[in-house]
Computed example of a mutant assay.
Amino acid sequence: MKKIYRLVPVGLRERAAFMLRAGYYPQFKKPVTYNQKVNYRKLYWKNPLFITCSDKIAVKEYVADKIGREHIIDSVFVGDMITPNQAKQLMENYGSLVVKANHNSGPVQFLDKEDGEETIRNVCHNINQQLKEDYGKVKQEPWYSHVKPKVLVERKLRMADGSDPCDYKFHVFNDPDRSRQTVILQMDYDRHKMLHRSFFNESLDWLPFSWKQPCLKTSIVRPPGYDRMLEIAKLLALPFSHARIDLYNIDGSIYFGEITFAHASGRGKFSSIIYDKWLGKLWELDPAI
């Protein structure tokens, strides 16, 4: 089915996917809603930083220069492929691992010392197969096509109690003279079992909508170092009209995750189109930058 789908002309294919997932007929050339503006960006992007900041390897140096290396998760392996023996040796040296491709927004893999041979082989195979795919063409997010595919392995972050850290996704919108920035915080919960998400403003007041996933939580505890997280998110988003900045907070220590330029590939369905239009109104600058 994927092969047949990709034979359909891109314009028709993207509109069909948009209608199916976002739930309404799009206008990409004169976008109004948030989802429409993401698709405009996919068609007419012109900011070369999209390439650097979408490369999960190259972006680490870029971000380290901006906010300091103490916020960067160390890479324990970078290569053109990964073998099960290499993965096992890395686990011996570093413990639990996060294994990913640098050129996509594809499924991230995890490895723990308790994993058996079959799991290790499957993880390595999955990642090596991801390297063969031109993600930019698959998702029509062309900046990814300019990134040379590599395997990236990182040590898995853990909280002091051994649990997984929260992933704070800051949607940052710049106003026309870049003197004011609006931040919408997205929190994803229970990602590996029953994913649900909630949205909050900069002051951590709950926003009453859902976006692609159901909303179950309506409050959030202010994390230690939250002001620094806001500062980092706003600084990293400054060169763009809009960007999503992902950060981790490990008991007050803040780590950079990634920068995303086409959230949900511009097809995430809102609980009401009112909120799709509202976020679109926050996105005041040219979506192509």
Rank of each mutant, 00 (worst) to 15 (best):
M1E: 09
Y5L: 15
V10Y: 04
L12N: 01
R13T: 08
R15Q: 15
R15A: 09
M19N: 07
R21N: 14
G23I: 10
G23Y: 08
Y24P: 10
Y24N: 10
Q27F: 04
Q27E: 15
P31K: 03
Q36S: 10
V38L: 12
N39P: 05
R41N: 08
L43W: 14
N47G: 06
F50E: 05
I51P: 06
T52H: 00
T52Q: 11
C53Q: 14
S54Y: 01
S54N: 07
K56R: 14
I57K: 02
I57M: 04
I57S: 02
V63C: 09
V63M: 07
K66H: 13
K66N: 12
I67W: 03
G68N: 09
G68Q: 08
R69D: 12
R69E: 13
E70W: 00
H71M: 07
H71Y: 08
F77T: 00
M81Q: 14
P84D: 04
P84M: 01
A87W: 01
Q89M: 11
L90M: 07
M91A: 14
Y94L: 01
Y94M: 00
V99N: 01
K100M: 04
K100S: 04
N102V: 05
S105F: 07
P107V: 04
F110Y: 14
G116V: 05
T119S: 11
N122L: 11
C124F: 01
C124G: 02
I127Q: 01
Q129R: 14
Q129I: 00
G136D: 07
K137I: 09
V138C: 02
K139N: 12
K139A: 12
Q140P: 00
Q140G: 02
E141V: 10
E141T: 13
H146G: 00
V147S: 03
K150L: 10
K150T: 02
V151Y: 00
R155F: 02
R155V: 08
M159L: 15
D161A: 12
G162F: 08
S163H: 10
D164C: 03
P165M: 00
K169S: 11
V172K: 04
D175G: 10
D175S: 12
S179K: 15
T182K: 14
T182Y: 06
L185E: 10
Q186M: 14
M187F: 05
D190E: 14
K193P: 01
R197H: 07
F200E: 12
N201M: 13
E202G: 04
S203C: 09
L207S: 11
F209I: 04
F209H: 04
K212E: 14
P214D: 07
P214E: 08
V221D: 15
P223Y: 05
P223C: 08
P224L: 03
Y226L: 11
R228P: 02
L230P: 06
E231C: 12
I232R: 01
L235G: 00
L236W: 01
L236A: 08
F240V: 12
H242M: 13
H242Q: 15
R244S: 11
D246G: 09
Y248C: 09
G257T: 06
I259M: 15
T260Y: 02
T260R: 01
A262H: 09
R267L: 03
F270M: 04
S272E: 12
L279S: 02
L279C: 03
G280V: 00
D286M: 06
P287V: 04
